[in-house]
């Protein structure tokens, strides 16, 4: 008998999804990071049936699912409608941001395109951790807009002191830097919930 499960989203095997979703998600495929190292994309995703569900679903006391999937026209067409799919590690990211929010003591705002982005998103490049659901771009903390080096560095320091193993993008306007948000990520973490389908079940692959 299945265990009682409070989390309402169904875990799906990306390899079992229709071709149009697989083309955009590329489950289990490899991407090269900026240094040319191979990284394997997530295979298991939560299925988000509607914007209404995303709007109401708390991933942590202060973060709702919609904040992590708010993208713009740069996202691939199939993920500008529902159902949408988000890597299961998104729940871990929400918990880390909750801890960060406790440390800063005020609201933490995730930018559009600043949570999960599919590998087909126009801004996704070089194995961006955004494609793993483990990165967040924060544009505002409380009443502070992160639009200058000083504010970005200040909160970057808080993140690094609060969250073990977090990586933050240095402040600046050159390539590889950030000048209008704080980017933080936890690298290429993959989450496989206990109720995920069998890894060996690739019948529809």
């Amino acid at each position: 008998m299945a265990e009682d499960r409070l989390f309402p989203l169904q875990v799906v095997d990306g390899l079992a999804l229709d071709q149009k979703y697989r083309d955009a998600l590329r489950p289990g495929e490899s991407l090269l990071d900026a240094a040319g190292r191979e990284r394997t994309l997530p295979r298991y995703f939560y299925e988000v049936p509607s914007w209404d569900v995303a709007r109401k679903l708390e991933l942590s006391p202060h973060f709702y699912l919609w904040e992590f999937i708010q993208t713009d026209v740069r996202e691939v067409d199939v993920f500008r409608r529902f159902p949408r799919y988000v890597p299961c590690a998104i729940t871990l990211l929400a918990l880390c941001l909750e801890r960060f929010r406790e440390a800063v003591g005020t609201f933490v705002h995730i930018a559009a395109n600043g949570g999960y982005r599919s590998p087909a998103h126009r801004l996704s490049r070089d194995a961006s951790p955004h494609c793993w659901g483990t990165a967040a771009n924060i544009y505002r903390i409380g009443s502070t807009w992160l639009s200058d080096e000083k504010s970005i560095e200040r909160f970057s320091m808080v993140a690094r002191e609060t969250l073990p193993a977090v990586w933050t993008r240095p402040a600046g306007d050159a390539a590889g830097f950030a000048d209008d948000h704080l980017h933080l990520d936890f690298g290429y973490v993959v989450s496989i919930p206990r109720d995920a389908p069998d890894d060996k079940d690739k019948a529809r692959r």
């Binding site: 559009a112 000048d179 209008d180």
Partner: peptide, 17 residues
């Protein structure tokens, strides 16, 4: 279609922000 509102642009002269 929705666009991310971001106040960051590149100059037509030298690509500076």
């Amino acid at each position: 279609s929705r666009l991310h509102v971001r106040n960051r642009f590149r100059s037509a002269d030298d690509d500076s922000i």
